[in-house]
């Protein structure tokens, strides 16, 4: 039953190995693909907190991904045009500094998640799914119709933002940033899932009545989980925008929400490395099948159907068996 940690280590080191090999053989495109995997996995880790630990089936996580992306786009575009964001009552300038952009992205998406969560967590089941989906569409159409930041066309950033001491234009250095952040998020997720908060949240997912009967209010747990989840997915959005040096309303679309959910389900809901495996397999399929056929989404759908029907723990569950319990 100790197979899952080994599998996790293999996956995490495997991603690094691919990148090192790509560097040795001078294949920058592969490094970019691996960076995509790391960033999308990070978005999935965020969703996994709400969906896996909390049982909150959110179809609106593109909101946080998009907010993270636009936080980057807006700050960087003001910096590159030397026009301040706000002049009055305080002067706020744009920035090309990644750490500052990340903080803004996390704060903004966390606040949005708090607001959306506070409203939608009063419902459950299908209603919760529909409300989160509706919020996603709201942000999507807002982004499309907001001409100041590119509207439908989105925003391009000419030069990737900077990180002190690193050359972020070097693919492997930017990968390293994303890889380390993913590692930190996974560490946070693993601690969180074993903490007092994680225990109560997991119990509330399995049986809300039981949690209330011992004097714990599920609503607060879920709201905090949803907000943290939004923060992580928002950070992923900022990195994703930096990877592409481009943001557009697509980041807010329901397809984006759906894809993030696919990573989690494909890899294994509530499994620590579920989103990593899911994102890796997704990108791989997109790359391989996408080269073979335009309709690769149909094949992906077939793979997903098989996973959902026959492997309830996703790919990780298939390989490592039922979740290891600590007691």
């Amino acid at each position: 039953m100790r197979r899952e940690p080994l599998l996790n280590a293999a996956v995490f080191l495997g991603l690094l190995a691919v990148v090192l090999w790509a560097r040795a053989t001078d294949e920058p495109f592969t490094i970019t693909l691996a960076t995509r995997v790391a960033i999308l996995a990070l978005a999935g880790v965020g969703l996994n907190l709400a969906l896996g630990l909390g049982g909150l089936v959110s179809l609106g996580h593109a909101v946080f991904f998009g907010i993270g992306g636009y936080a980057m786009g807006i700050l960087a575009s003001h910096a590159q045009s030397y026009s301040p964001l706000i002049e009055w009552p305080v002067l706020i300038e744009g920035t090309k500094s990644m750490p500052v952009i990340w903080l803004v992205a996390m704060a903004a998406s966390g606040l949005a998640a708090l607001g959306i969560g506070a409203l939608s967590l009063r419902t459950s089941g299908v209603y919760f799914i529909m409300i989160t989906l509706a919020f996603g569409q709201m942000f999507y159409y807002f982004a499309i119709s907001w001409p100041a930041y590119g509207g439908e066309d989105g925003l391009s950033i000419y030069v990737r933002n900077g990180f002190p001491g690193l050359n972020t234009l070097d693919p492997i250095q930017f990968f390293a940033i994303c890889y380390v952040i993913l590692g930190l998020a996974l560490w946070l997720f693993s601690r969180l899932s074993r903490s007092a908060f994680g225990l109560a949240l997991g119990a509330a997912r399995q049986n809300g009545e039981r949690v209330m009967a011992v004097g714990i209010a599920p609503y607060r747990l879920r709201l905090v989980a949803f907000a943290l989840s939004g923060v992580i997915t928002g950070l992923a959005g900022a990195l994703f925008a930096d990877l592409n040096r481009f943001v557009s309303p697509t980041m807010f679309s329901w397809q984006t929400s759906g894809e993030i959910m696919v990573f989690v389900i494909l890899g294994g809901v509530a499994r620590l490395f579920g989103p990593v495996v899911g994102a890796a397999v997704f990108i791989l399929l997109e790359h391989v099948l996408g080269g073979l056929s335009e309709f690769w989404h149909i094949y992906l759908g077939a793979v997903l159907l098989v996973v959902v029907l026959f492997a309830r723990g996703g790919i990780i569950g298939l390989i490592a068996g039922r979740e290891v319990r600590h007691d």
């Binding site: 903490s195 007092a196 908060f197 994680g198 225990l199 011992v214 600590h326």
Partner: peptide, 21 residues
């Protein structure tokens, strides 16, 4: 874990995110 959950409910301080419960 179910019994620890009960003890946790009694003690309060549920918003602890880091230490292994």
């Amino acid at each position: 874990q179910n019994a620890v959950l009960g003890a946790l409910g009694k003690r309060g301080r549920v918003m602890r995110f880091w230490r292994d419960v």
